[in-house]
Computed example of a mutant assay.
Amino acid sequence: MTPTELIAQKVRKNIIWSIYHAKSGHPGGSLSCSDIMTILFHKVMSAPRTKNRLSEDSFILSKGHAAPTLYAAAATKGLLTTAELKTLRSINSPLQGHPDVKHLPWVDVSTGSLGQGFSVAVGIAKGLQLKNSSNRVFTLLGDGELQEGQVWEAAMFSGHHGLSQLTAIVDYNKLQSDASNSEICNLEPLMDKWQSFGWQVINIDGHDHQQLLAALLADNASSQPKVLIAHTIKGKGIDFMENMPLWHGSVTLSEQQYIDAMTSLGCSSTELEEYQNV
């Protein structure tokens, strides 16, 4: 494995660790976007200039229910400890089921209601444009989230105003809470839709680190905002979770499921013991 692939695998282990102890959470969509967040946080976003900041650039997790990935990735940047990840969704813990700026100083925006995080990202990008700032805005959306009307209002606004500082990434795992996107509300032709709103569209494998890095660093065409349609696998890395809507969210992992999941992610008996001793 490459260094970033090892980090992404650690992120996935941290996700399962935290959701197991919370007895609740969204493993499927958290696992599918682990590679995306790993490359963003470790290879693309600018270094922070002040303590307790993830980056000088902005990151908005519009699919707020994937907070376990945000926390797990933050732990690989030294912003959280493994012990803190164990408190996911606990009363009085800063690590709630959706990101909360009141308790986490390195989080840019509190998110939860789907579609709204993207709209805030667009507003931040417009503000940066007005200030002639070179800072960038990255936002991660779920594919089911694209069924929200305000997503397309924000997309239309961004294309019209040429918000070239803005990069959106769609975690296109093609499943949502009850079934496939195509059964609930088909998104295709997805590339054509974004292009029609004036966006530069890049179609990639959302688990291929080289493709992710190249797409995220690619110059925006003229003044267009950029969107990555990242094809991913829901529950990526855990054989009994992959491509199963059952593991979207509101699930409780049994001890055996936890062990099986961690083993599927390459966790050795020694590493499992290290987690248990936290």
Rank of each mutant, 00 (worst) to 15 (best):
G266F: 14
A230D: 08
L253D: 07
S264R: 15
G266S: 11
L265W: 11
Q210C: 03
H248L: 03
Q257K: 14
I238N: 10
G235C: 08
K236F: 06
T270R: 14
S250F: 14
L228R: 04
C267E: 09
H209Y: 07
P245D: 13
L216H: 00
M241R: 01
A230C: 15
S222H: 13
S223Y: 05
G237E: 03
F240D: 05
A261G: 13
T232L: 08
W247A: 01
L212N: 01
A215C: 01
S223H: 09
G237K: 01
Q256E: 13
A215N: 02
K234S: 10
G235A: 12
Q210S: 03
T252M: 11
H209F: 11
K236E: 02
S250K: 15
M241I: 02
I229V: 13
G235H: 09
N220H: 12
I229L: 14
M262E: 11
I233Y: 03
H207E: 02
G249H: 06
G249N: 07
K236W: 03
I229F: 05
F240V: 05
D208F: 00
L265T: 14
D239E: 13
L213I: 01
T232P: 10
E242G: 05
L265H: 13
H207A: 01
H248P: 04
V227L: 12
S250C: 07
V251Q: 12
H231A: 12
G249P: 13
L213Y: 00
K236H: 06
D219W: 03
F240Q: 05
S250N: 15
G237F: 01
Q211W: 02
A221R: 11
D219G: 02
G249V: 07
A261M: 09
P245Y: 08
P245L: 11
M262K: 09
E255Y: 09
A214D: 02
Q257C: 13
M262R: 09
D219H: 08
L217R: 02
L228F: 05
H209P: 01
D239N: 10
A221S: 11
A214S: 02
E242Q: 15
L217S: 06
P225H: 06
L216P: 00
F240Y: 04
D260K: 12
C267F: 08
P245G: 07
Q224D: 06
T270V: 12
L246M: 12
G237C: 03
D260A: 15
I233Q: 04
I233D: 01
S254D: 13
S254N: 12
P225G: 06
E271F: 07
P225E: 06
N243V: 04
D219N: 10
H209V: 02
Y258E: 12
I229W: 10
L213K: 02
H231E: 14
E271R: 03
P245H: 11
D219T: 07
H231Y: 15
E271G: 03
G249E: 07
N243P: 06
V227H: 12
Q210Y: 01
L216Y: 01
K226E: 10
P225Q: 08
K226Q: 13
L217V: 00
E242F: 06
S268V: 05
H231D: 14
H248N: 04
T263N: 10
L246G: 12
